[in-house]
């Protein structure tokens, strides 16, 4: 069985920038354990000699001429921002943090 407990959930929540209430973390741990238990059926398959599929259909990386095209006008690019100044996004201060 998959071992995932509340501490694991809190660790990955931090990686995913999510905050969970203690009861939410507890519930998520139980649900994720059930899902991971289900996916462990894949262990029954021998895949040592199998190449992974990253693209369902074979497609070469398409190339195009390196030609400048009109971009999204900057005023429209910032129009949806919760806070902006000129053509810049405004965010709370980044200093005094142990993360970026």
């Amino acid at each position: 069985m998959a071992r995932i407990d509340r501490a694991d959930v809190e660790r990955i929540a931090e990686l995913a920038r999510l905050e969970l209430a203690p009861d939410e973390a507890e519930r998520m741990a139980a649900e994720l354990a059930a899902i991971l238990g289900y996916v462990e059926q894949l262990d029954a398959l021998d895949t040592d000699a199998v190449e992974p599929t990253y693209h369902a259909l074979p497609l070469k990386t398409p190339l195009r001429e390196d030609r400048a095209e009109p971009p999204l006008p900057p005023e429209r690019a910032v129009a949806n921002a919760p806070a902006s100044e000129g053509f810049a996004f405004v965010v709370p201060k980044v200093l005094d943090e142990d993360e970026s």
């Binding site: 920038r17 949806n80 921002a81 919760p82 806070a83 996004f89 709370p92 201060k93």
Partner: peptide, 17 residues
């Protein structure tokens, strides 16, 4: 940061979360 709903917070990390 760029679109959608933002929860106000004093620091960037707190705002993300």
């Amino acid at each position: 940061v760029r679109f959608g709903r933002r929860a106000e917070a004093a620091t960037l990390g707190e705002m993300y979360r």
